[in-house]
């Protein structure tokens, strides 16, 4: 790098800046109002999340316990691929699932060419945007989000937050504990493009289909309620 470019640019910025102390700048920042979040489509946070996933053109399912979770994954795999195989990151939460009970054969690691389905366990999810959040790393290699045709994501109900601000509170806490991940990925839908005559097509570069399974205690009719809110 040319050191002179850096110092020249900073010299110009210094003349333009207010030149307050770090404390004064921080105080001013803290005094700024916060950004209002949009009204959620339902008062109950699980329902709002599932509705927004559907609006983002994802598909949804729910599972109360581990047994139901592996069954839900098995069903999805069989429905679309007549297969039992998928790839998943080395996430201990995934490794602990009773896959054999449902006849699913996961391979743990990074996705390889030709593998059509990847499974991720989200770190958290945001009801406001219907987004799931993953951190890159051994537990969820980035390519597993991007290269499969179908991406299945498990979200624990207790990891669901209402707004983007709350999501950052959680992420900042995680970073305090475990350091900064290389990548923080908010995913809200299958990959899409409207670059040819404005026509929306799914599966531009990333997954064509995005399937979210919400784990834990949820109201019995929540799937039906979410579907009826969108159609």
């Amino acid at each position: 790098m040319s050191e002179s470019a850096r110092s020249e640019i900073f010299a110009k910025l210094r003349t333009a800046s207010r030149g307050g102390s770090a404390e004064a700048i921080d105080r001013e920042r803290q005094s700024l109002q916060s950004a209002p979040a949009p009204m959620p489509p339902a008062t109950e946070v699980c329902e709002a999340f599932l509705i927004n996933v559907l609006k983002n053109r994802g598909s949804i399912d729910c599972a109360a316990g581990r047994g139901e979770t592996v069954k839900a994954v098995a069903q999805y795999l069989y429905q679309y691929f007549r297969s039992h195989r998928l790839v998943a990151g080395n996430d201990p939460r995934l490794a602990a699932m009773p896959w054999r009970d449902a006849g699913v054969l996961p391979r743990f690691g990074g996705i390889e060419a030709g593998e059509p389905v990847a499974l991720s366990f989200a770190q958290l999810a945001v009801a406001e945007t219907g987004a799931i959040v993953t951190y890159t790393g051994k537990a969820n290699p980035a390519a597993n989000n991007l290269l499969p045709q179908h991406h299945i994501v498990l979200v624990d109900r207790t990891d669901l937050v209402a707004t983007q601000e709350q999501a950052w509170t959680r992420i900042n806490q995680d970073m305090e504990k475990r350091g900064r991940p290389r990548g923080i990925n908010f995913i809200a839908g299958p990959s899409s493009t409207a670059d040819i005559e404005g026509q929306l097509v799914y599966g531009a570069h990333g997954p064509r289909s995005w399937h979210v399974i919400l784990l834990g205690d949820t109201p019995a009719d929540i799937l039906a309620r979410a579907h009826s809110a969108v159609t």
């Binding site: 950004a35 979040a37 949009p38 927004n52 609006k55 983002n56 990151g89 690691g109 990074g110 945007t129 219907g130 987004a131 890159t136 790393g137 051994k138 290699p141 980035a142 390519a143 983007q164 900064r180 991940p181 290389r182 990548g183 923080i184 990925n185 908010f186 995913i187 809200a188 839908g189 299958p190 990959s191 899409s192 409207a194 990333g206």
Partner: peptide
């Protein structure tokens, strides 16, 4: 909250990512 709504009418784009640097020990890719 404003960008995608103003650009394409979506509430959020499919991918919103934050990248910090090169891959870490134990990372599979990056």
């Amino acid at each position: 909250r404003l960008l995608a709504r103003s650009a394409t009418g979506q509430s959020q784009t499919a991918y919103t990512s934050f990248y910090s640097g090169p891959s870490r020990d134990g990372d599979v890719d990056g």
